[in-house]
Every structure is written in C-alpha cells, then in structure tokens.
Amino acid sequence: MVAPYLVHFLVITAFPIIFSMVLTLHRWNLLSPMQWIGATNFSTVFSDPLFWKSLWNTFRFLGIHIPLQVGSALILAVILNQKIQARGFFRAAFFLPVVVSGVVVTILWKQLYSTDTGLLNSLLMSVGLERVEWLTSPAIAMPAIAIMATWKNVGLYVILLLSGLQTIPKQVYEAATLDGAGKISQFFNITIPMLNPILLSVIILSTINGFSLFIEPYVMTGGGPLNSTLSMNLYIYNQGFAFYKMGYAATLGFVLAGIVFAVVLLERRYIESDTT
C-alpha cells in the first residue's frame, strides 16, 4: 500500500536529488553536453559576491520579518484571548491575506508602494510627512518587502498562538494572582514559558518560509535596487532559468539547503535550552 508513495518518492524526490548532486559537479546549459568540472561550482559559490549579497539579503529579510511577525502575532493573539466582542470577525479579518494568492498581494502592494502614484505616499503626504521610496531605495526596499510579507502571513501565526494560549490552564493565572503577581509579570513568567513550544514552531516555520522568499522580489523589484532585494531563491532562479547555468544553480540549491538546515537546528537548540 505504500507503493504509490514509494514510486512517487523515487521519481519525484530521489531521482531529482541524485541528479542535482551530479549537476553540482558539472557545467551544463541544458543544450550542450554536460561538462565535468569537479568541485569548481562550490569554490565559485564562495567567491561569488552576489551569492554573499543574496545570503545577506535573505538574513536581513529574516531579521526584520521574524521579530515583526512573531511580535505582532503575539500582541494580537494575547488581545484576542481576552473577553472580546466580535472575536470571530477579527480572527477572520486577520486571516484573510493568508488564504489569498501571493500574486494578488504583490500586485496590490506594488501599487500601494509606488513612489510617485502610490496610496501609502499619498497618505503620508496628505498629513504633511515626507514621501518614502518604498521599493526604489536600496535601504528601504527589503524592509518594505518584509512588512508586506508580515501583513500577508501574520494571521496564520495569530491563530497558532491563540490556540496555544487557550491551552494554558486558567488556574495557573489564578494562583499567580493570589501570589500577588501583576499582569505584566504574569505575561513574562507564565504566558511566554508556557507558549514556548508553540513559539518555537512559529519561529521555525517563519524561518523556513522566509528562506523561500521569491515571488515578492520577482514581481515587485526584480531583485533591485542595487541587488538589495535579491533573495537566495531569486538568485538561484536567475542562474538556472535566465542564464541556464544549471550546475551552478543546483550547487546554490544545496548550499542554501545546508544553511536552512543549520539555522533551524540552531534555533531549536537555542530556544529549547532556553526553556530548561
């Protein structure tokens, strides 16, 4: 009965992985025969300034996106966990961008972010503030994309954290109140530790999703300005499907996979050691 899975695994997963490993040792543009070049692709990766740039960009994105996402999700979830009217409405509203295609979100935000004709700058200038070059300033473009990605996904994390909050027994808070602990100390001494496992999931999930950043810069900035939004995935896509450097793109894929793996392990270790 596992045959369908195994067949699928062999063709759709195992074969591509092995093929990919073979590719990393070759130069191949799809058209001409593969050319064996040993480990050259790997040494090229480490001396490729755009690889480092895209790695830095991806971490920069994660560095803004994850705290923003986890922080705002936590605030909204804690508030929603109070006795609130129309909780269902708010929950549904926060969740709406999660189900909508990323393509819609990027098209919409490209218009909102437009420097000269965008809604956001019109709003800023109507209250007398200076406009912002959202997608065309090297310093701001990546944070702007991170804000947009947070807007798109935060609803999911609100729901996750909310379900975590609801599993914390009321008695724990009641006991703490009897001991004279204030609301704020309760939040840090009870809520956060009790939420730890789910926070870990949230952070790891945000990390993995964050590393796959592609469609946003692909549609909105093409990786610019000055390569400041060139994510690792976009770089791999460009190498593979714009310049047909299949071997190099496969190598980049493996390097990225290693980095994702390492980061997730680190997060797990750090947060778990934090609990004990």
């Binding site: 490209k110 437009s114 420097t115 000269d116 004709t117 070059e133 997608l135 065309t136």
Partner: peptide, 8 residues
C-alpha cells in the same frame, strides 16, 4: 528621470 516603478 523618475527613480520609480510605474504600472501605467
């Protein structure tokens, strides 16, 4: 020259 992206 506008350093801007126009959809129009």
């Amino acid at each position: 020259f506008p350093r801007s992206l126009f959809q129009e």
